[in-house]
Amino acid sequence: MRRRDVLAWLGAAAASTLPARAQSPAMPVIGYLAPESPVPFESRLKAFREGLADVGYVEGRNVAIEYRWADGRYDRLPSLAADLAGRNVSVLVASGGAPSAVAAKAATKTITIVFEMGGDPVALGVVDSLSRPAGNITGVSSLSVEVSRKRLEFMHELRPTASSFGVAVNPTSPTSGSQVRNLQMAAEALGVQLHVMNASTEGEFEAMFLSATQAQAGGLVFTSDPYFAFRSTKLADLCLRYSMPAVTQSRDFPAAGGLMSYGGDFIQSHRRAGNYAGRVLNGEKPSSLPVQLVTKVELVVNLKTAKALSITIPPSLISGADMVIE
């Protein structure tokens, strides 16, 4: 009888500790906000997880990650960000461009936000200082937005005889205005005309290529925008179909058969974002984590596509390329 009593008592004790254990999660939770779907984000996530691992966090072992995917519908980002903020995550990672960062910043003033974007966070009003970000937000910026003009320069170098170039702009992007201004200044310096075309949905892509071809543009320069970056395959197909040389920010583009890309190394930026997320989990404050600028900008050229388009890549471009796909 006594043994049965003890067993019953033990069972009761175990039962009473179970909910307590469930309530005190030793694992912190990262809220991960991304504008796209998991598949195109795979390489970015890998880099992000490596950055976390550098600080000692491994998903599923000592940290949990709550993902929110906007699947390309950037207007859903604010509600997704609000959802993550409502779940009171330990740190909110706003990845894949300025729209995520802007949505996250609007969603919470208390949870620390780590952004990963291509634009200038000070110019976008996301942070007030690079070295000492005030408030609850810090992160990593690649230089993709700043180097839009270099894309025009490369295209001009590729087609020195062309007098006009098409520029693809996503008008919903918070950086579109400054990029177009930058490009206009560069066009003046280079003495070329710009044919600015807007596209904010996939459906508008085809019309854009058509318009560029009709305007006899020497090439198509894509402004830095995640929406374009994550649709590299589709854009590469269109380039080949319309025989239109084009340059985008993402190396995914030449890898998918596009001609060229010039932009910040997203592997590096995502990895550093992971590193910062881990350091925030360790208790560091955004004010002691300066905004990092990814210094590495890479030029990738696909020679196969150049051949298909019957374009000769000048030696100056080849020698300056970080990666040449043959």
Binding site: S131, R279, P290, Q292
Partner: peptide, 10 residues
């Protein structure tokens, strides 16, 4: 720790 360097002349 690059973040220490990025704080500039603090």
């Amino acid at each position: 720790d690059i973040s220490l360097v990025l704080r500039g002349a603090d």
